Amino acid sequence: MRKWLTKWRLLPLFAMLTLFLAGCGEPFLSTLKPAGEVADMQYDLMVLSTLIMVVVIAVVTVIFIYVVVKFRRRKGEENNIPVQVEGNHKLEIIWTVIPILLLLVLTVPVVSATFKLAEVDAIEDENRKAEDAIVVNVRANLYWWEFEYPDYGVVTSQDLIVPTDEKVYFNLIASDVKHSFWIPSAGGKMDTNTDNVNQMWLSFDSARADQAGEYFYGKCAELCGPSHGLMDFKVKALSRDEFDQWISDMEGAQAVASTELAVQGEQLFEEKGCIACHAVSPTDERPAAARTAPNLATFGERARVAGILPNDAENIRNWLKDPETYKPGNKMTNTYPKLSDQELDALTEYLMGLKVSSN
């Protein structure tokens, strides 16, 4: 008996620990810190629905306590039978009308927001570029993300660059299995399927982008394999002028090996077959379905290696040596021969030098 009591005493501790851990996470990796128009709409709907539920629960609780206290069995009245009420038309009307009214209060803003979020006609507009409508083709892969800017011929991976204070439209598709595109602080998730393109739009508020730090965080929100939890990407929100400059730099970017060791790494990159999967130019003209590995044109500038490790020489080297340890089930594992220490150093030097440099 004492053993059971000891176990039950641990229950409140674990409950409090669960609540505490629920508050842990990366900066701005929360739907409760909206940073754009879509996130604001969805946050307001969450608050509204929560308030309605709290009010309903509070009213029901008060009525329940009142009934339990008022109509409880009292000493000496065990044999008294209370008045039997078979029905009350007023009460029946009240508890029928109130839920309908509450449902209408919630339905109207939900339907309004749904139609507003479905407005993606700008994607098909031939004049969208002249009207500064940004379209990004997102392709989800095991376990990385590709971002293509079709109006500019620019392709990048893992780091999504967007302008602030305007709508950014997304075409979403998957290469292998179902994934889900999610930037928690910018808006709700949407699935990426292999057989159809889903479309959505998001916006990123400039003031709150500054509060978020250098990046927003994006994730895959659909269980897709052993490294689903590691399928992250970063979102960098720039002013429109900075975004236009980034596009200009990307359009004129070229990979240049600037040191003798980097030149050796570039040769290894080609000899070992890395170039067959990885492009090193942001203007990759291959069909999207033919891009089987992340574009490395801006690899040296990215925040993370493989989306999860801080981008430094040690982590690049460790990833090249044994990618399976860091991201199980990735397609890079066993696709090239084991590398010597000198080859690892050379490839690391080459990859760190892959940065945007205009002609």
Rank of each mutant, 00 (worst) to 15 (best):
K7C: 13
L10K: 10
T18H: 10
A22W: 11
G23P: 06
G23Q: 10
T31R: 08
K33T: 11
Y43M: 09
I52N: 05
I52Y: 06
V56Q: 11
V59N: 07
V62L: 14
Y66P: 07
R72E: 14
R74K: 15
R74W: 11
K75P: 09
N88H: 14
H89T: 15
I94H: 12
W95N: 14
L104H: 11
V111G: 14
S112A: 14
E119Q: 15
V120N: 07
D121M: 09
R128I: 10
A130L: 15
L142P: 02
Y143I: 01
V154K: 00
L160C: 06
V162L: 02
F170L: 07
N171F: 05
S180W: 01
F181Y: 05
K189V: 06
D195N: 11
W201D: 00
S203W: 02
D210V: 08
Y215N: 05
K219H: 09
C220A: 07
M231I: 04
K236I: 04
D241Y: 06
D244I: 02
S248F: 07
E260G: 10
G265H: 04
E266P: 01
Q267C: 05
Q267P: 03
L268G: 09
K272N: 11
C277F: 05
A279C: 06
S281E: 03
P282Y: 03
P287L: 09
A288I: 14
T292K: 15
A297H: 01
I308L: 06
N311G: 08
E314Y: 09
L320A: 06
Y326H: 09
K327L: 08
T333E: 13
L339V: 14
E343L: 07
M352V: 08
L354D: 02
